[in-house]
């Protein structure tokens, strides 16, 4: 087993009005990485570059130890399950037909697994899924991605647009998937809280730049939330403060714990507020 499920080095892709700029990150095998960023931050461009649907201007990408421009990458795709935002099977097909098609397209296609997921997700078997809701289409794509013994799942906005109950169900499935030590996931979303629970790593894209790619726990440890009187706040080292909000009765601030005066304790901050603060700041 390779050490990293995914390695991206200096990935650059320029469009007329947008550029993904020199992104490097590594996803250790066996872990889940959440790729966070607002709409248009470059998440889809990054993911499409990984699977080869977008050709980067510069940089290298290694997926499951295989350069994604090499001829061998086609074979590697047997081990990669992909769910793309909106892109899916032709909607004329029924679940049964998708099964029959995929049986021929993947060497390791597991019919039973697929049909079990279809049942678990309550997908009608004989209905062309053009009549499916977005959530159902997503579930179909997820079922397919999980049914050919993939070792890496690449999921673009796979949880957005799902109602909370379904989303939880789907996140559970992803969580189960990584019980296997060689299984890894790269999942993107613009909703942080969706991913916060299950991720080991958080990568944050902002306007085409990777602001950080960090262990989730480290982020939580490094940053904290404090509430204190205004004069006490003024006395703080300004470098410690990421963002502050004056409530009128005091100041609530997101801070770097290490720069706080000794003994001052900060509460646990939500990943979301850390990211929002960083996005506003626009730099690390």
């Amino acid at each position: 087993m390779e050490e990293f499920a995914l390695k991206i080095r200096h990935l650059t892709k320029r469009y007329k009005d947008f550029a993904l700029n020199d992104v490097s990150l590594e996803l250790p095998a066996g872990s889940i990485m959440g790729l966070i960023g607002e709409n248009g931050a470059g998440k889809s461009t990054l993911i499409k570059s990984v699977i080869g649907a977008v050709k980067p201007d510069a940089g290298e990408i290694e997926v499951l130890g295989c350069d994604n421009r090499s001829a061998g990458f086609t074979l590697k795709k047997e081990e990669i399950g992909v769910v793309l935002d909106e892109a899916c099977f032709p909607a004329a097909l029924t679940v049964r037909q998708v099964n029959r098609v995929m049986r021929d397209l993947f060497k390791n296609w597991e019919e039973k697994t697929f049909l079990d997921y279809a049942e678990r997700f309550a997908l009608p078997q004989n209905k062309a899924f053009q009549e499916f809701s977005r959530g159902m289409k997503m579930k179909l794509a997820i079922a397919a991605a999980l049914s050919h013994r993939a070792r890496l799942l690449i999921l673009d906005e796979a949880t957005s647009g799902l109602d909370p109950i379904v989303r939880d169900e789907v996140l559970d499935v992803f969580n189960e998937f990584t019980r296997e030590e060689s299984h890894s996931i790269l999942i993107s979303s613009h909703i942080v809280s969706d991913l916060e629970k299950i991720c080991d790593y958080i990568a944050f894209l902002h306007k085409g730049e990777l602001l950080f790619c960090e262990e989730k726990d480290l982020l939580l440890e490094r940053y904290g939330l404090i509430t204190l009187r205004r004069d006490a706040f003024e006395a703080l080292d300004k470098r410690a403060v990421l963002s502050a909000h004056d409530t009128g009765y005091g100041v609530q601030a997101l801070v770097r714990r290490e720069l706080l005066p000794a003994g001052m304790k900060a509460e646990r901050a939500a990943i979301e507020s850390i990211i929002v603060a960083m996005a506003k700041e626009g730099k690390k």
Partner: peptide, 18 residues
């Protein structure tokens, strides 16, 4: 045309097809 409408052309890139 129908494949493109459902973006299967993009999905096909993700499959083990040369």
């Amino acid at each position: 045309a129908y494949e493109e409408q459902d973006k299967w052309d993009c999905m096909a890139v993700c499959l083990p097809l040369r």
